[in-house]
Amino acid sequence: MDVRSAEQALDIRIPSDVQYIEGIVQQVVRRCELHAFPRRHLALNVPVALTEALSNAILRGNLDDAARSVHVHAEVDSSRLVLEVRDEGQGFDLEACTVDPTTPDHMMLEDGRGLFLMRRLMDHVERFSDGGNVVRLILLRGVA
């Protein structure tokens, strides 16, 4: 794992392996804690949304291919957290993913809640291509 970190920014490149997820989440949460993000953000919004973005990148973007890597960039300040998760996949149309997993037709399905949770737990979610497929998540700290 290649790690370069400043006081606020974090740059990590990991192999496509879900076992790395928890360690990255801990590092990002720690930075948010230093900037007095609300407890709910530290315990729920950031860990769950970042885990979803990372598992999507590893399992769907990179097709669980350990030879491919995922790059995580995080910037935190007193107003917001900006996360970028880049994989080596083909990308997908975020706007086309509108399935609501809370409807009776989808409630009993095992999959399909990841993107929904990212959207509900973050203030902004977008996808773009930049030398790879990137998902950007933004969470506003709000009044602490």
Partner: peptide, 17 residues
């Protein structure tokens, strides 16, 4: 328990079924 992601929720749904 700390937190649960969509995969964890999905497993609980699958097991309940």
């Amino acid at each position: 328990t700390g937190y649960i992601d969509s995969s964890g929720l999905g497993v609980l749904v699958s097991l309940a079924k």
